[in-house]
Design a protein around this nucleic acid. Sequence first.
DNA 1: CGCCAGGACGCCC
DNA 2: GGGCGTCATGGC
Length: 272
Amino acid sequence: MEHKTHENDIIVYEKDLDLDETLDCGQAFRWRKIRSDYLCTYEGSFLDSRLTVSQSGEHEFIFHNISEEEFLGKWADYFDFGTDYTALKRQFSEDKTLRAACGFAGGIRLLRQDAWECLISFIISQNNNIPRIKGIIERLCGHYGHFPTPGELAAETPDSLAFLRSGFRAKYICDAAKRTAEGSADLAAIAAMPLDEARTELKKICGVGPKVAECVLLYGMHRTEAFPIDVWIKRVLAEYYPDGFPEYLSENAGIAQQYLFHYIRMKQEQTA
DNA sequence: CGCCAGGACGCCC
DNA sequence: GGGCGTCATGGC
């Protein structure tokens, strides 16, 4: 990744990034495509940080109206620009199915999101569809003007969160907020634990089962060996990996999973 | 209308 | 330990 400043923007050159594939593949829920003169432009946030970013060419991106400090200190990390995805995809491509998935959408990157925001977001995601997940999170952030802190959410009750229309998940949101605010769930500590221990700790939060725990580990703590299994990945495993997922990929299985998730969903959409 | 959604829980055996 | 009904809400 190379970058330069131009007026108030940061221009980035990166071969292994596609904004549509990365920001609209179900790993983050707060990005929305806005009309523009570029290939595509997205507006989005994590916690209370907002960004407008455009894809101005196949390998060229504009991070609008931010300083170099803000780019290097925040967004370069968020977009995981420190990781060599060319090397990752080369490794993935030893596997036939993954080679097809990377060939289909090679511009996916694993965003380095905030653990707390991921915890709440993926609690909301359970037994839910992506458009509605986005709506609930939008109402949540709209209410506070930013993604609520653990303390802010801990002051709520399922009744006071009725405006979210999050259904049975409201009580789970409250439990996660309470535990995080009071420290019985210490996300920073969990992020540093051995994987199985981290899983166990996350699942102590009411409403966090195997799938949500895996998503928090992968998307919010960048534990790339975490491997969320939802209905789509179940189909991939049954169809392409009846004898199990290749062991040599285990260290980056979560990133591989991201390519496969996008691949199988788009394939389904095309044949549907 | 019915089926499904980036599931987890409680209960049953 | 595995199987199954239930849980709100709304997209399609």
